[in-house]
């Protein structure tokens, strides 16, 4: 019920879902396509294509934190939420899962497009592709709700969101291999969830099983989700 409510909030303005896909399309068919022609050797377009979808996933996932912040500071829904007949940890984790489902819905067409580009659309790897997007979203929803719990103004939330998105986009292997980074930055790059997600996705066509590429994201995503759940419980005083 809680997950369904969050999904309904997303679809209360279906225009938003369309705009998110438009953002993805611009990232992929304008920016990635142009850099693909600009950078010689190999297929750079395919290299950065999964990143466009993960950027969309992170934007959709961050909407959850924004909604949580608005519920407390703008809509004053805390009393209503406290009255719901659900165990509070279950309720809090359901909010996280609601964010993951929303993100999966927002990235559904994008994941299919990238799976098609990678030639895995009709194979079992497409399931792993959705699992990778889902696990990545789980971690980012957790992070976004954690951020929403500690900021006092929407401007501060937007700033934190921008900082995290800059880290995810530019200090990861989304655009370039880890070898081009100065040694001082390689730790930051290697410990970036975006690096794990894009590398997992890129490995799908060559992988011999689905577990390997997906498994790298499980522990960190669950850790971020647990953090988000705890922060939400504390924040909403549930």
């Amino acid at each position: 019920m809680v997950v369904e409510r969050d999904v309904r909030i997303l679809f209360s303005d279906s225009f938003l879902v369309g705009i998110m896909f438009a953002n993805f399309a611009i990232d992929l068919f304008v920016t990635a396509a142009t850099f693909g022609r600009l950078i010689p050797g190999g297929d750079y377009f395919l290299y950065i294509a999964p990143g466009s979808n993960f950027i969309t996933a992170s934007v959709a996932a961050f909407q959850s934190g924004r909604d949580v912040w608005r519920e407390k500071h703008i809509k004053d829904l805390t009393s209503y939420l406290l009255s719901l007949p659900a165990p509070r940890p279950v309720f809090a984790f359901s909010r996280i899962m609601g964010g993951v489902v929303r993100s999966l819905i927002a990235t559904f067409p994008g994941t299919l497009v990238i799976a098609y580009l990678y030639g895995i659309l009709l194979g079992p790897e497409v399931l792993a592709a959705f699992m990778i997007v889902g696990l990545f979203s789980l971690g980012i929803v957790g992070l976004s709700i954690t951020a929403a719990s500690f900021v006092s103004s929407i401007e501060m939330f937007v700033t934190v969101r921008s900082a995290i998105q800059l880290y995810l986009s530019f200090l990861s292997t989304l655009f370039y291999p880890v070898a081009v980074f100065p040694p001082a930055l390689t730790f930051l790059v290697s410990s970036n969830p975006m690096t794990w997600a894009v590398e997992s996705f890129r490995s799908l066509p060559q992988s011999h099983g689905l577990v390997g590429p997906v498994s790298v994201l499980v522990a960190p995503s669950l850790a971020f989700a647990a953090l988000g759940t705890l922060c939400y419980l504390w924040y909403a005083k549930l």
């Binding site: 950078i39 401007e155 700033t159």
Partner: peptide
Amino acid sequence: WIIISRSLAFVIQLFVFAALISK
């Protein structure tokens, strides 16, 4: 906050993205 986030974006774009992608 708005100034901080946009400035951060500029600095990272220039000194990380542009510097690395230029290679």
